[in-house]
Write a protein that binds this DNA or RNA. Structure first.
Lengths: 286, 286
DNA sequence: TTGCTCCTCACGTCACGTGAGGTGGC
DNA sequence: TTGCTCCTCACGTCACGTGAGGTGGC
C-alpha cells in the first residue's frame, strides 16, 4: 500500500499544467525529482506539495532564465547577492532584446510601406558591420569632379606596384567633405586608397596609414558610377530613418573584377561610418 | 587557369562578414550556392556579385525570418501578395514578442525591487493558466463566516458519496461576492463544490453544473487558512500591478491529503479569474 | 483480460559552431 | 616541402516534443 498522497506523473502534470515530457526532463536535469520512484517499475510519484517548487520553476522560466540558472537560484544556500546578480544580468539582456525587436519591427514596417508601391523588393540591402583598421596607401586631394579620381588611382597604383605589390587591387575612395552651392557639387575633398598587406614608406603625396576602425552602414551596388547615386540616397535615407548620424568620411570600395569576355557590371560597396543618436530612453515597464 | 574573379570561400566570407560555416550551411540548404565548385577538390568558389544575394539574405535574417521563408522570398517568381503576407505575419509575431519581453522586464524589475528587502525569494509564485470547464456538485449560500463552510462541504460530500462516488475528494470554494463594512467582513456569497467525473442529478440545495472556463492568475499556498490571507493579498497586488482585472468568483481548491502520521500542511490553490485591461497601444516603432 | 498509464530509448528542432581527420594550393 | 586553406563528416546547442516498442496498474 502506497502513500495515498502521492500522485502519478500524469496527475501531477495536469495539476501543474505542464507535460509529462517536461517532468521527465526536469527529473533527468535534477531540477525537480519525484518524491518517490518505484524501483521495480520506474514509475515516478510526486507529492502535492511539490507543486510549489514546480511553480517556482515555471515563474523563473517566464523570466527567460535557462534551466541551469534556475537550478542555481533554487539552491537553498544561494545568497541574496548571487540572486540579484543573475536577475540583473537577465534584466539587461531583456532590455537589449526589446531594443533589437523594436528595430526589427521598424524594419518590417518599412518593408511593408515599401510594398505599397507594389514592388516586391527593396532596391538595396543595408546592413551594419564594424570595419577593422585597414592599412592603405593613399592620395588625398580637393578635386572638383569625380572623374579626376582616375588619375589619382593610377598614381597610387603605380606607387604600390613599384614597391613590389602584385595582383589585382581593390580601389577605395573616401569622401572627406564636399562643398555644394545651389545643390551643385563645387568640390570634393577626396582620398583614393589601395589596401596594403605590408607597410610601405610614405612618400609625398602618397601617404601610407591606417584607415580607422568604424561602425558602418553599408550596401553593395552593382552597376556603373551614374547609378551609384541611388545607392547613396538609399543609405542616407536609411541612416536618418533609423536614427543614426554619419560621423566620418564615406568609403566606397570598388572590387577588382577582370573583364572576361562578356560585360561585367562593376560591384561597389558603399560604407557610411555611423553612430547612434542619443537613443530613446528605455522604460522599466513599470 | 581559373576565372580570376572567383573568390575562395574564405575571402568571400570575409567580404560578406559571415563565417565559412554559415556559407557551408547556405550551400547545403540551397540558399546560396557557390558559382563554381571544383569537382575534383570540392572547393567552393564565389563571385563578388554574389555578395548582393548574401546581403539580401542577411537583411531578411535580421527580420528574424527563418531560412525556409527567406528561401521563399528569394524566389524570383514570388508575388507581391505572398511577400506581403509573410512579412505581415512576421510583423504580428514581432509585436507579440515585444509585448512578452516587456512583461518579462516588468517581472524582473518587480523581483529586483523585492530583493531590496534582502529576501532572496518572493513568498508566492504567481502564474497564469486557462482552466477547463469543470463539472461539480455544489451548494451556494450567503454566510457570515468562513467557518460555516465546513458543514456545507460535509453536505455536498454526503450527497456525492450517496451517489456512488468514492475516494478522496478535493474541496473547491468559490467566493461569489462579499460584503464589508469598515473593512470587516459581514457576509460572503459562497459556493462549496466537489469535482465530479460523471453527471449526477441536481437536488436542491445541491446543484450539479459546470464551472465556466476562465483565464486565471493562481498561486499555491502551503499552510492553514489563517496564513492563506497573505496569498490572497499577493495575488491581488500582482493582478493590479500587471494591469489585469478580476472578472469572476475567486476559486480556492484545497487538495485532498490524507493525514499520514506526521502533520502535513494543507495545500491550497487560489485562482483569480482575470482579463486584461485595455492594453497600452503598441507603436509600430516609427 | 482489456484499456490506460507509464517506462526507456532515440531522434528531431534551428542555424549554425566546433573539432577531428584528411587533402588541395601555391 | 611547409604552412595555409579548404574539404567532409559528426556531434553539440536548448528545452523539450514525438513516436516506437515494451511493460505495469487496476
Amino acid at each position: 500500500m502506497r502513500n495515498p498522497n502521492l500522485l502519478r506523473i500524469g496527475e501531477f502534470a495536469q495539476l501543474g499544467h505542464v507535460s509529462i515530457a517536461t517532468l521527465h526532463h526536469y527529473d533527468e536535469y535534477g531540477l525537480l525529482k519525484p518524491l518517490v520512484i518505484d524501483p521495480r517499475t520506474g514509475y515516478r510519484y510526486y507529492s502535492i506539495s511539490q507543486l510549489l517548487r514546480l511553480n517556482r520553476i515555471l515563474v523563473l522560466k517566464e523570466l527567460a532564465l535557462p534551466l541551469d540558472e534556475i537550478a542555481l537560484l533554487l539552491q537553498a544556500d544561494i545568497s541574496y547577492h548571487q540572486f540579484r546578480t543573475i536577475l540583473e544580468a537577465k534584466q539587461r539582456e531583456v532590455k537589449q532584446v526589446i531594443e533589437a525587436e523594436k528595430v526589427r519591427l521598424r524594419q518590417l514596417t518599412l518593408w511593408l510601406q515599401h510594398l505599397e508601391g507594389k514592388e516586391a523588393m527593396l532596391a538595396y540591402d543595408i546592413l551594419i558591420k564594424p570595419v577593422e583598421p585597414l592599412l592603405v596607401a593613399s592620395i588625398r586631394n580637393r578635386i572638383s569632379h569625380m572623374y579626376e579620381r582616375g588619375p589619382l588611382f593610377t598614381t597610387v597604383e603605380a606607387y604600390v606596384r613599384k614597391h613590389g605589390m602584385q595582383g589585382p587591387m581593390d580601389e577605395i575612395v573616401l569622401l572627406h567633405s564636399h562643398h555644394e552651392i545651389h545643390d551643385e557639387l563645387m568640390s570634393i575633398e577626396m582620398e583614393v586608397a589601395i589596401p596594403l598587406e605590408n607597410v610601405l614608406p610614405s612618400n609625398e603625396p602618397i601617404r601610407v596609414h591606417f584607415l580607422p576602425t568604424e561602425m558602418v552602414a553599408y550596401t553593395v551596388h552593382s552597376g556603373d558610377d551614374i547609378s551609384l547615386g541611388r545607392a547613396y540616397l538609399a543609405l542616407q535615407q536609411w541612416i536618418s530613418t533609423h536614427g543614426y548620424t554619419v560621423v566620418d568620411a564615406v568609403r566606397q570600395i570598388r572590387f577588382y573584377q577582370a573583364t572576361v569576355g562578356e560585360i561585367t557590371l562593376p560591384i561597389t560597396e558603399i560604407q557610411f561610418p555611423i553612430k547612434k543618436q542619443p537613443p530613446c530612453e528605455i522604460s522599466t515597464g513599470l
